[in-house]
Structures are given as structure tokens and as C-alpha cells.
């Protein structure tokens, strides 16, 4: 993908926003979003080794952590329903934005890997 800078800024600020939206919901999700946003901003920031895939690497790892968040949320949701019956737990919340964020990151991840496969041939 071109315009990696814009993508990184987008990921960084979006995940920061998500972090603060979910600060009270779940501390794992909060910390993970903070991590994603740091990954994105540091990807923008330092590039000491002048490695050609520096920005792509930050996009990809940011994407992987976002997928973890999505998987976590989904499992938590499903087993939350089980807990409703076995442990008299509360009905779990369906947080649509967390899934949408992970979906968005999945698309970016796939795009970026395809880009790497194309340009990586010549490196």
C-alpha cells in the first residue's frame, strides 16, 4: 500500500480512540488498543535501521494485535452467554465497534501483505 504514513496515523488515532472508549469495559482490551496505537505511532517515528519494510512491519504487527483483540472479544462474548446459564452471569455486551475495528485491520493487513509480496520480489 502507498501512503503508509496516512494508514499509520489512521491506525494510531483510531486505536487510541478505541482505547479510551473501552477504558471501563475491559482492561485487556484497553491495554491492547494502547499497544496498537503505540505500534502505529512508533512506526511513524523512528526508522533507525533504514529497513525498507519498517512501516509495513508496524502496520502488520498492529494488525495482528488487533486480530487478537477481535478473537478475544468474540470468545468472551460466546462464553459470556454460557456463563449466563451456568454462573448466573450478566448478559454479555455486543460491542460492534470492536469487531468493526478488527475487520478494518484485517483488510489493511491483507492489503499490506499483498503489497509486500509484490514489492518484496525485487529486494
Amino acid at each position: 500500500m502507498k501512503n503508509k504514513k496516512i494508514i499509520l496515523i489512521l491506525i494510531g488515532s483510531l486505536s487510541l480512540l478505541m482505547a479510551f472508549l473501552n477504558i471501563k469495559y475491559d482492561s485487556f482490551i484497553f491495554i491492547s488498543y494502547i499497544t496498537v496505537s503505540l505500534i502505529a505511532f512508533i512506526g511513524l517515528w523512528e526508522d533507525i535501521k533504514n529497513i525498507w519494510y519498517h512501516k509495513s512491519a508496524h502496520i502488520i504487527v498492529g494488525g495482528i494485535v488487533s486480530l487478537l483483540i477481535g478473537a478475544y472479544e468474540l470468545l468472551k462474548y460466546l462464553f459470556g452467554w454460557l456463563a449466563v446459564y451456568t454462573s448466573e452471569g450478566n448478559i454479555p455486551e455486543f460491542k460492534i465497534f470492536i469487531y468493526l475495528f478488527s475487520l478494518l485491520m484485517l483488510i489493511i493487513l491483507i492489503q499490506e501483505i499483498n503489497y509486500l509480496k509484490k514489492t518484496g520480489e525485487n529486494k
Binding site: I31, A57, I64
Partner: peptide, 27 residues
């Protein structure tokens, strides 16, 4: 190499480690 570039990063690497452990425990 691409994944290691971030996963062994001084700050991010440790942070991702914390996230991984947290993931395992919470789940």
C-alpha cells in the same frame, strides 16, 4: 524478519509480551 522487527523492539516487544500474557490469562 518483518514480524521480528516489531516483536523484538525494545519497548513494543515488551508491551506485546504483556499483551500476549494478559490475553492468555483473561481468556
Amino acid at each position: 524478519d518483518i514480524l521480528d522487527h516489531v516483536m523484538t523492539h525494545k519497548v513494543l516487544g515488551l508491551l506485546i509480551y504483556v499483551v500476549a500474557l494478559y490475553f492468555v490469562f483473561s481468556l
